[in-house]
Design a binder for these strands. Structure first.
Length: 667
DNA sequence: AGCACGCCGACT
DNA sequence: GTCGGCGTGCTC
């Protein structure tokens, strides 16, 4: 007998011989096997007879066979993960906490793992009381009972909930768990960021007690091993965590909730670049568990999946595009949402100011009442650096990104690669001497606020160094807070009376087909920090912008209709699949580009479109050059095969490093 | 991941 | 002349 063993390493499965007197159920067992003159733990993923051969002579033998740790569906899931994200199975195994499993088994000498799966438990033991319908905003719709029924019946389904507000998103989840949690076995609850674990940990702890286990990437090695130990022994079967928790080694899954499903945090930027939301949907499918995706501003992809009935939409806002959209139906006011007001940034009395007269007036009103106000600007530092003579904007010598002027230090910095230089008053392009600050970052806004509003505002990133303050960051600290939308996510507690995006156009003009969607999500997120009846201001030079108007009206239906029509016209996701291939090189040799072009041409499958290759800046120290190829296809098999072909061909060529990013969020 | 092999800079 | 830097490659 022969077995294929996967090690948690970047290597393909290796084949070993196995003694004749071994147990029959070898698949999914942990084994100790010789590897590179030492012994390592791996997982049996396949079993072969002699007839399946021919096998290489002199193959090594398995040293010992241990516990069963992966079920048939676990192996199916592992293979899917490896195939879909074009990664060696070993990397997928490693991401699925295999090393922690081995460590837990070693440390606690868990003798025999009970192989019974939760799905094998008789129905009578997992029956719960019938749930009440969701009593919230959308009373009358049978959303909640549908989810609860689906969990109990192990009737696989993916639900999409468009929650009116984040607190309602939480309370709906808690209600579902309250109804079914006691009976359901194997539950995963995903939140986009670690800080969101805290607010759910208390009520979930009360509900599940020792069944609950928290899992996120900031957990130390010991705590991670302990969490995994609890899961594989069955002590815990409810996981609350971030992205990686979707890969937690649960013995069967009956329910997965993905809160803030639109969040880019679910997509990994390094290592195995999986999207936890998509993985959750596949895991639910494989495990016959129920999946709930929820968000106050769902991704266009998920909304599309609901319109084609791949997902089931439940109570909440109406977002499914309908044939006769009436204005009343689309205006989702109420729900305790703040007003959204568009401010025209064009013209006006003081053109050179970044805060319009209109906004200044509103700000004075709010500050006079001693209420909280939040200013958002999408750049750190003071400004860009521009030559008045030729219009040239100073750029980083390494990566072509704009340099940012930091007034306090009197230096220019590249926020992408960290390059820094002193400021000069001579233009690098035309030798002109009229060098001026251009545009505004947080520092410049602070200066303007001090002058125009005679207030000392709080700059969020300035206090980054002192974690004590940042964890308590709230509007109570200062009536006026300035920061980037990203930094503003660290603000908690209290509510603002108003928030203002000082330059929403920067967000809308991102060279990415998801720019509008991201802007909408950002605005929705910030609007959650403003009290009901308060206002979110959007300063823009395009007050007539169609999408801004849809956003202002909270017209989700109109927004998704527009977004989907745009994406369909351009064949972007969800109407196609994208795979980004980054080829890193040490030197930009003359033959390299043509070599890549040949590899691309030879690998291109029917139905796969190839964009590029183009050179993009590289952040890597050892590989200073990066060539990017974007694969776009309606046929995911063709896209996958094309990428596999390209990376196989190029990886054989020395000196190249190939990174594959399936379903990239940023392009 | 480890561990070996291998090819260029600062030391006895 | 050698010691050692870590970049590259292999593991049944």
């Amino acid at each position: 007998m022969y077995v294929d063993v996967v090690f948690p390493l970047k290597i393909p499965p290796l084949t070993y011989r196995i003694p004749a007197d071994m147990p029959r159920d070898l698949k999914g067992r942990i084994v100790k096997a010789p590897l590179m003159g030492r012994s390592s733990y791996g997982l049996i993923v396949d079993v072969f007879n002699k007839a399946d051969g021919p096998f290489k002579k002199g193959m090594k033998e398995i040293q010992s066979v241990h516990q069963q740790c992966a079920s048939g569906t676990d192996l199916q899931f592992l293979k899917w993960l490896s195939h879909y994200y074009t990664t060696p199975m070993g990397i997928a195994l490693k991401s699925c906490f295999f090393e922690e499993i081995v460590a837990a088994l070693k440390k606690y000498e868990i003798a025999a793992l009970n192989p019974v799966r939760y799905s094998d438990v008789p129905d009578s033991r997992i029956a719960g009381r019938p749930p009440d319908d969701y009593p919230g905003e959308a009373a009358g719709e049978k959303g909640l009972s549908h989810v609860c029924g689906s969990i109990r019946d192990r009737d696989y389904r993916t639900f999409l909930l468009h929650a009116p507000t984040a607190p309602l998103e939480h309370s709906l989840l808690l209600e579902i768990l309250g109804n079914t949690g006691a009976a359901a076995r194997g539950i995963i609850i995903l939140v986009p960021e670690i800080r969101q674990i805290e607010s759910l940990e208390l009520p979930l702890g009360r509900m599940f007690e020792q069944r609950l286990c928290v899992l996120h990437s900031k957990l130390g090695k010991g705590k991670r091993t302990e969490a995994v130990r609890r899961l594989i022994t069955g002590e815990s079967d409810v996981v609350l965590g971030t992205r990686s928790a979707v890969l937690a080694p649960l013995r069967g899954v009956s329910f997965i909730a993905v809160l803030g499903e639109h969040s880019p945090s679910y997509k990994g930027e390094e290592g195995l670049r999986y999207n936890a939301r998509d993985v959750a949907v596949m895991k639910g499918f494989i495990e016959k568990g129920c999946v709930l995706l929820s968000s106050v501003c769902p991704s266009t992809e998920s909304v599309y999946n609901a319109t084609i009935s791949k997902y089931t939409q439940i109570a909440g806002n109406r977002i499914m595009p309908s044939r006769t959209p009436g204005p009343e139906a689309s205006h989702m006011t109420g729900h305790g949402r703040p007003k959204i007001r568009i401010i025209n940034q064009q013209g006006g009395k003081h053109k050179d100011l970044f805060i319009t007269e209109e906004l200044l007036k509103e700000a004075k009103k709010i500050l006079s009442k001693n209420e909280g106000l939040l200013f958002l600007i999408n750049r750190k530092g003071y400004s860009l650096i521009r030559c008045e003579d030729c219009g040239h904007i100073a750029q980083c010598k390494k990566c072509m990104m704009s340099l940012v002027f930091h007034k306090g230090e009197g230096r220019a910095r590249c926020h992408y690669c960290g390059y820094e230089e002193g400021i000069t008053d001579i233009c690098g392009e035309c030798k002109g001497t009229r060098i001026k600050a251009f545009g505004a970052g947080t520092e410049r806004i602070k200066e303007e606020v001090e002058e125009m509003l005679k207030t000392e505002p709080l700059l969020i990133e300035k206090i980054k160094g002192s974690p004590k303050i940042s964890s308590e960051l709230s509007p109570d600290l200062s009536p006026l807070i300035i920061g980037t939308a990203y930094a503003a996510r660290r603000i908690r507690g209290g509510e603002f009376s108003a928030a203002a995006f000082l330059n929403i156009d920067v967000l809308l003009a991102q060279p990415d087909f998801r720019a509008y969607e991201r802007a909408f999500q950002e605005i929705m997120h910030i609007s959650q920090m403003v009290r009901p009846g308060g206002t979110v201001f959007l300063q823009t030079r395009n007050p007539g912008d169609r999408v801004l108007r849809l956003i202002r009206n909270y017209d989700f239906e109109g927004f998704y209709n527009y977004e989907l029509s745009q994406r369909k016209a351009l064949d972007f996701p969800p109407f196609s699949r994208l795979i980004l291939v980054n080829i890193f090189a040490k030197k930009l040799a003359a033959g390299l580009l043509s070599e890549i072009q040949t590899a691309v041409a030879e690998s291109r499958e029917e139905g796969a479109e190839v964009l590029g290759p183009v050179e993009i800046p590289s952040a890597s120290k050892s590989h200073k050059y990066c060539i990017q190829v974007l694969i776009k296809s309606k046929n995911s098999k063709a896209a996958n095969a094309t990428v596999k072909g390209i990376s196989n061909k190029l990886e054989k060529t020395g000196g190249l490093k190939v990174h594959v990013d399936v379903d990239p969020l940023k392009i």
